[in-house]
């Protein structure tokens, strides 16, 4: 046997129907009078379900608007070049550099260190190192950052390689050119001459990396492309630097030489036309290598 509607109503009414006591009524009227004395709210907050959820949605949107950018910035903090959030990190550090000018240099050095530990190719490491070098120079070349950068380079074996290469080039420059048919000798008389001159400055690291404009030109926008792509771009950039003729500084070409010696990619090797350096490079047959032709 089941309940009828009337029985259900009676049972529910008996259980829950209550009356308000005078004491409660007085207390509530007092509270209402107090609310009436307050300055009225301008908008009636309709207690509809929609409004109820709209309030929550508004709170959620507000919270998202406040915390999402911060969350993205925090997430971008540990990114490396090539990561999706890396541009966010760059923007963030630009802003933070107003307060802490050394932050950009510190980040670049950290990135280079981490990329080295993660086994990134040397060409990419070198790009980050050059950026770090620039950043260190921009903040006045403080000893702390300079020595840290040197440590990182040393761990990578970069300086060692540069010094070896530079010494090798110097020896070639000093050797007399006796055979005009010698392909090495021909190479020494083309655009490579300027590079040889530049190599004499490699002993001074600050000079080598100090030219901000030149490195920006080389690495500004095409830093992290794949070797096959960046080879063309970089060769073009090199070509434009070369077309500047005598205005090219020693640091420019030294940077290029450094890259030549420490990368196996086609990017810089092809641009250098460096057959005289005995690296077994075959890439100077490529079109980009032609840019270096006088």
């Amino acid at each position: 046997m089941s309940l009828k509607d009337q029985q259900l109503s009676e049972r529910l009414g008996a259980a829950f129907e209550i009356e308000m006591t005078d004491e409660v009524r007085t207390r509530q009227l007092s509270a209402i009078s107090g609310a009436l004395l307050e300055r009225p709210s301008e908008v009636l907050s309709s207690p509809s379900l929609l409004t109820h959820w709209r309030r929550r949605l508004a709170a959620l949107v507000a919270a998202t608007a406040i915390f999402a950018p911060a969350a993205v910035a925090v997430a971008a903090e540990g990114t490396l070049p090539g990561d999706v959030l890396y541009p966010v990190k760059q923007i963030t550090e630009e802003v933070r550099s107003v307060v802490d000018p050394m932050i950009i240099a510190t980040h670049r050095i950290d990135e280079a260190d981490r990329m080295h530990e993660m086994g990134f190719p040397l060409d990419k490491l070198e790009i980050v190192l050059i950026k770090a070098d620039n950043a260190v120079m921009k903040v006045g070349d403080p000893e702390m950052l300079r020595s840290r950068l040197a440590d990182v380079r040393e761990r990578m074996g970069m300086d060692h390689a540069v010094e070896e290469m530079s010494e090798s080039d110097l020896q070639r420059d000093r050797s007399p050119i006796t055979d005009p048919h010698d392909p090495d000798a021909v190479t020494n008389h083309d655009s490579g001459d300027m590079m040889r001159d530049a190599d004499t400055t490699t002993g001074d690291e600050g000079t080598r990396m100090g030219d901000t404009d030149s490195t920006d030109t080389r690495f500004g926008t095409n830093d992290y492309k794949s070797p096959s792509t960046s080879g063309t771009d970089d060769a073009e950039t090199q070509s434009s630097s070369d077309s500047d003729g005598e205005s090219s500084t020693g640091s420019d070409t030294t940077t290029a030489t450094t890259m030549m010696d420490n990368t196996s990619s086609t990017t810089w090797d092809s641009g250098s036309d460096s057959s005289s350096h005995d690296r077994g490079d075959t890439s100077h047959d490529t079109g980009s290598g032609d840019d270096w032709s006088p």
Partner: peptide
Amino acid sequence: FVELARTAGS
């Protein structure tokens, strides 16, 4: 009731 008292104008 208190909420109504505050917003009854609208």
